[in-house]
């Protein structure tokens, strides 16, 4: 079929990363959280929900590998009302659902906007994966990669697309560093060398500061999105 002009809104629904919804309103900012299994993605999402839920309208999409474990954790912790949390099934391939075939996640995000919107922010949490798992730009506007000190202090040096290109790198569980023999200074230096100026946050959700640094990064993103 020949077309001289492709209308950005050719039909009844948007297709991907389009910043406007079918009715012309601006859609929610979408931030992806990825990283290895057990690095603290869900705990970070829960902490972000608690920190932001009174100031913005937000929702969460989880991508579990073979259960609804992460969604159920968020429900149990009551960080958001249940209608604001959706789980996507990923067929043994969590990275496929956030990068190569984002259709199920796009539908989950759009269904949330339809059912509980308008939303300011949607957090899309990847199932735990390997160091190469990154989000498609068709799904999220920005991505956070979460690693932890107990997973080995050589991870920042090893690099990989998550560590090197994520908009924010979070090194989690810094309170465990003394017990795992992880050298935080070395992790910081390696991350700096790998990331060409992109920001890095060291956090421990067990200490007073908690998720504050990540929250303020998200607030900056929200302000830029709304501008």
């Amino acid at each position: 079929m020949h077309r001289d002009h492709i209308d950005p809104h050719p039909g009844p629904a948007v297709l991907g990363a389009d910043a406007r919804r079918p009715d012309g309103t601006r859609r929610a900012l979408r931030i992806g959280l990825g990283g290895p299994v057990g690095s603290g993605k869900t705990a970070t999402v829960a902490a972000l929900c608690r920190a932001l839920r009174d100031e913005v309208s937000l929702a969460v999409v989880t991508n579990d590998i073979y259960t609804r474990e992460d969604a159920e954790y968020l429900l149990r912790e009551a960080v958001l009302p249940p209608e604001r949390i959706t789980a996507v099934e990923t067929g043994a391939c969590p990275h496929t659902a956030i990068r190569d075939d984002i259709s199920a996640n796009l539908e989950a995000v759009e269904d949330l906007e339809d059912s509980v919107g308008p939303l300011d922010l949607v957090l899309v949490e990847s199932g735990g994966d390997n160091l190469t798992a990154t989000f498609s730009k068709g799904l999220v506007d920005a991505q956070i990669f979460v690693i932890d000190v107990a997973g080995g202090d050589d991870v920042p040096r090893k690099g990989g697309p998550g560590v090197t290109t994520a908009d924010l790198l979070v090194v989690n569980k810094t309170d465990l560093a003394p017990y795992t023999g992880s050298d935080l200074g070395r992790m910081a230096a390696d991350a700096k060398a790998q990331r060409a100026g992109l920001p890095v946050v060291f956090q421990s959700l067990r200490e007073d500061e908690g998720v504050a640094a990540v929250t303020s990064w998200v607030r900056q993103r929200l302000a830029a999105w709304a501008a």
Binding site: M1, R3, P10, G11, P12, A13, L15, G16, S103, E107
Partner: peptide, 27 residues
Amino acid sequence: KLGRQLLRAARATWPGVELDALARRFP
């Protein structure tokens, strides 16, 4: 569910009025 996902991918890949009409009829 799979039909909806295929429809999204197909509309982006081969834009056309019949696929748009289908999306309107079956959101």
